[in-house]
Amino acid sequence: MKILTKLDKLIIVLILLLSILSYVVMALSIASNVPNSVVITVNGKLYANYDLAEIKSPEIIRINTEFGKNILKITSDGAEMLDADCKDKFDVKCGKITKIGQIIICVPNRVSVELKGTIKEEIDKVTY
């Protein structure tokens, strides 16, 4: 007994093709929300600006200013404060930041490190 007719197989192939096609279209049209630059400011003024696309291997940056010393590590996907000479070290405890808009702030040393990029529309959660 034949279970599937010719037209059935055609329908299955068509739906598979449609799904592959839509996948390709989606993959091309939706870019991911990765940050593209790290902006370091000290005392509200721009200190340095790094393009993440140019950073291949992790880079250590020493921020030495009149307010204090900070050691920042920049990788191709984010930034992390390794050490600071401030008292509480909240910036070190902050850990690594990898998303657009995340920010590390060291208040005693007046240093802020922010990830910048263009945010595409993102859905938090879908419920049914």
Partner: peptide, 23 residues
């Protein structure tokens, strides 16, 4: 319906998986 509710075309990225699931 989901696209209309969330007023976002990005929900459509679910389409390929749903089509295979419907098969």
């Amino acid at each position: 319906v989901a696209v209309i509710f969330y007023s976002s075309v990005y929900v459509m990225s679910y389409l390929p998986i749903l089509l295979v699931l419907s098969l």
